[in-house]
């Protein structure tokens, strides 16, 4: 099939960018979206043009590298699917597809569709962990964990840190990302000792990085390739409120 692409091209963080149009005459429906871009890039390179820069790595929907907004939707139109797992059989001959980077002030553009998402790492640094040094763990079965709790923790822990939630949110909020981690660790006994310190520190960092607040639009959940629940945000709110009311340290 024949497709028209409008792709955001931007040489560097301080350069101006613009949408540029490309025609691809020979797209196979079995290609993945990124393979379609590979084909275009090889063609550009043969012509001596700069290929389109985009982040990608595992191409099986788990590393969270791929980050592009396709026709206004982070990771494209398919529910619960990363860009790398999106296949061209979703499209019809003659379609025009607009591809832009994940947009947020906290995610500055590096080049073309590549953005800097280290702000998410810094949120984890603030407290998204259990402070257990190597070697001082008790036996793994010493603390039983109810299966429903373990399952819910796993639901939240599936977050791949891609930032689609931020990209989709009209406020560029990182609440789903932070909520997923706070929920994952907060549901497990191992996460209890630091539960309230964690939520305060992570929220403080999140605000500092320049993400917006949550207004319960729900776009984040809609865009999330792992379909993380909005309940994680409620839990973040509840833990934050409890922590604020009960913390004793400054």
């Amino acid at each position: 099939m024949r497709l028209t692409l409008r792709v955001w091209r931007q040489a560097g963080p301080r350069d101006a960018g613009a949408l540029k149009q490309y025609e691809i005459p020979d797209v196979s429906p079995d290609m993945s979206f990124l393979e379609m871009l590979d084909v275009l890039n090889e063609r550009l390179e043969r012509q001596g043009d700069r290929p389109i820069a985009f982040d990608h790595d595992c191409r099986e929907g788990i590393c969270g590298s791929c980050s592009m907004t396709i026709d206004g939707r982070p990771h494209g139109p398919q529910q619960g699917t990363t860009t790398c797992q999106l296949h061209m059989r979703r499209y019809r001959d003659g379609d025009t597809i607009t591809i832009e980077p994940f947009r947020a002030t906290a995610f500055p553009v590096v080049r073309d569709l590549v953005v800097d998402r280290t702000a998410l790492d810094r949120i984890i640094q603030a407290g998204g962990f259990v402070g257990v040094a190597t070697g001082n763990a008790p036996d793994a079965n010493a603390i039983p964990i109810a299966k429903p709790d373990a399952d819910r923790a796993m639901d939240a822990a599936q977050c791949i840190g891609c930032g689609a939630c931020v990209a989709a949110c009209p406020n560029a909020s990182a609440m789903l990302f932070a909520g997923a981690k706070v929920t994952h660790l907060g549901l497990l006994p191992q996460g209890q000792p630091e539960r309230y310190r964690r939520v305060l520190a992570m929220v403080e960092r999140m605000d500092m990085e320049g993400f917006g607040g949550c207004t319960n639009f729900g776009e984040c959940h809609e865009a999330c390739p792992k379909e993380i629940s909005l309940a994680t945000i409620a839990r973040l709110n509840a833990d934050f409120l409890k922590a604020s009311l009960t913390r004793r340290d400054s």
């Binding site: 257990v132 763990a137 008790p138 793994a140 079965n141 039983p144 964990i145 299966k147 796993m154 191992q190």
Partner: peptide
């Protein structure tokens, strides 16, 4: 030791209904 360490870090391994 690895399993102990990972569980302590909060890795949500699959569990039986008894919690183990």
């Amino acid at each position: 030791n690895i399993i102990d360490q990972c569980v302590a870090q909060g890795v949500p391994f699959a569990r039986e209904y008894g919690g183990l």
